[in-house]
């Protein structure tokens, strides 16, 4: 099995996409690269097609919400290259609301529901997604449940309304 060094990937990305690699980090030995918002799809496609990398497996992708940060929203992608057994985490931040990201469904079919989930929970829009609807929550739900301001508890519950011990 070929081995892959983090630095090889970083160098290749910086060469291919000059100025688009915003930050590089290794939290807990996990290569994490922040990509400029507009280039995320090109980077993923490059990592997918480049034979020495071939990140052909999308482990997961999920949204993030940082209400107090300068960049409020992020998509986090975990990719896995089976040929080199290397995992990489890609991040793309944006501040627009609703946040718009390009869809990855034409690269990974599995991205379909993961992106629907991000839409359902955070209200992210994915341009080019074939079927962007709510997936887990009811269509009638208002708001985006995993954003920090959304209340967790069931608002119709009366037995917990207690001045001392309730919410």
């Amino acid at each position: 099995m070929a081995t892959l060094e983090s630095q090889t990937i970083i160098d290749a990305l910086e060469q291919q996409f000059p100025g688009k690699v915003v930050a590089v980090d290794h939290p807990y030995d996990f290569l994490t690269i922040t990509i400029a918002h507009g280039s995320i799809k090109d980077v993923v496609r490059y990592l997918y097609n480049e034979p020495s990398f071939s990140f052909r497996f999308l482990t997961s992708c999920c949204g993030m919400h940082y209400p107090d940060a300068p960049q409020k929203f992020a998509m986090v992608y975990h990719l896995h290259s089976f040929t080199t057994n290397f995992r990489i985490r890609l991040k793309a931040f944006t501040n627009e609301d609703p946040p718009v990201f390009p869809t990855l469904t034409d690269i990974y079919k599995g991205a379909n529901w993961m992106e629907r989930e991000a839409y359902d929970f955070f209200g992210f829009r994915f341009t080019g997604h074939p079927d962007l609807r709510r997936i887990l929550n009811m269509d009638s739900l208002e708001g985006w449940p995993l954003r920090k301001e959304f209340p967790l508890e069931d608002p119709f519950r009366k037995d917990k309304d207690d001045a001392m011990f309730g919410r």
């Binding site: 009811m138 739900l141 069931d154 519950r157």
Partner: peptide, 12 residues
Amino acid sequence: SGGIFDTYSVLQ
């Protein structure tokens, strides 16, 4: 009673 899932999506 909804159990441990006192959440917006679960019927209590």
